[in-house]
Amino acid sequence: MVAATVVALVLAALGGVSTGLRRRIGAAHVAGAALLEALLLVQAAVVVVGMAGGHRPAELATFLSYLVSVVLLPVAGLLWARSEPTRWAGTVLGVAALAVTVMLWRLLDLWAVTRG
């Protein structure tokens, strides 16, 4: 969870840097997004195992919709950034990474508040 947050923030920073340098996105961004995606999938697996073990987070519906969308975000951000030829591609990816950070934080919040 913490690792995923760090990777997401680094990815957001990388996106900002390439926009500042007027460059498109490159291997570093793809690698960062892939690493982030891998961590998010591991986290989703851990959550599913935990829920199978009887843990119920607060606001179950919200929690699940966040869990699904957070896994989709890096993929969507990367695909869309790759099709953008200007220097703003990095920022698009950065926005996706920041959104992942916020959602991770919300997920952790909901996970910690157990219901019953």
Binding site: L14, V17, S18, L21, R22, R23, R24, I25, G26, A27, A28, H29, G77, W80, E84, P85, T86, R87, W88, A89, G90, T91, V92, V95, A96
Partner: peptide, 29 residues
Amino acid sequence: AGALGGPAAEPAGGTVDTSRGPGRVLVAV
């Protein structure tokens, strides 16, 4: 293209498309 990617294409002035460049960031948010 290095790790940070190749140089960016700059819009050739007068392009009218709200979904390009900074506009795409706006759409993302």
